[in-house]
Simulated assay, not measured.
Amino acid sequence: MNKLRLGVTIIVALFIISGICGVLGVTDVYRGNSILEKIGMLIITAIFVGIMYIIIYYWYGKDNRCPSCKKPFCLKTTGEEVVSKENVSVLVNTNTRNRKGEVVGSQEQYVPGERITYRVNKVCKKCGKTCYSTYRRDMPKV
């Protein structure tokens, strides 16, 4: 999910930069545009700025929102600790290679692994309350 957030954020930021450059006439491509075309580009750029605001506020601010005071962007990570470990089978994609080292096929198989549960401790910058979140990661032992 974080790669999706980053990708969408970068694409929208590039559209915003392109629109601002077009409105200001920085590039040679947009210098001959009429005033109506520049106003249209300004409106489209404003729409992309609004989309960027929504992406930043809801995607990034939602993860750092304090559960007690409900303010976004105020949780600070103070530490991370391992809560539990358990043995599980982990699905791993293995590649088959020829003599030249090129990948000629792949298959999925289950291998012994370990599921580690982490607890991330956080503190609110505004109200000082502490909270935590948990996540799991499956790690193959092979």
Rank of each mutant, 00 (worst) to 15 (best):
D138L: 11
N33V: 03
C69E: 04
V142Q: 05
V8D: 01
K141G: 03
K3I: 12
E80M: 10
G40P: 03
T77Y: 02
M139E: 12
L36C: 02
C127Y: 10
G50L: 10
I39P: 02
V104L: 05
Y118M: 08
Y132L: 00
L6A: 12
T78V: 09
S34I: 09
I51T: 04
V111M: 10
S133F: 11
S18H: 15
V12P: 04
V120H: 02
N33Q: 12
I56S: 07
S68T: 05
V123C: 01
I51S: 07
Q109Y: 06
M1V: 11
E81I: 09
V83I: 12
G25C: 13
G40Y: 03
T45P: 00
A46F: 14
I10P: 00
V82G: 07
K100T: 08
N64R: 10
K126Y: 14
V88W: 03
T130H: 07
R31S: 12
T45D: 07
G79C: 13
V111S: 04
K141L: 15
T96N: 08
G101K: 12
K70N: 15
K62L: 11
V123T: 13
Y58A: 05
K129N: 14
E86H: 00
M52E: 15
K122H: 07
E86D: 11
S133C: 07
G79N: 10
K129S: 14
K141W: 05
I43V: 14
I116Q: 02
G61N: 05
C124I: 06
Y58I: 06
V82L: 14
V8R: 01
I56K: 00
I44W: 14
T77N: 02
M41S: 09
N121L: 08
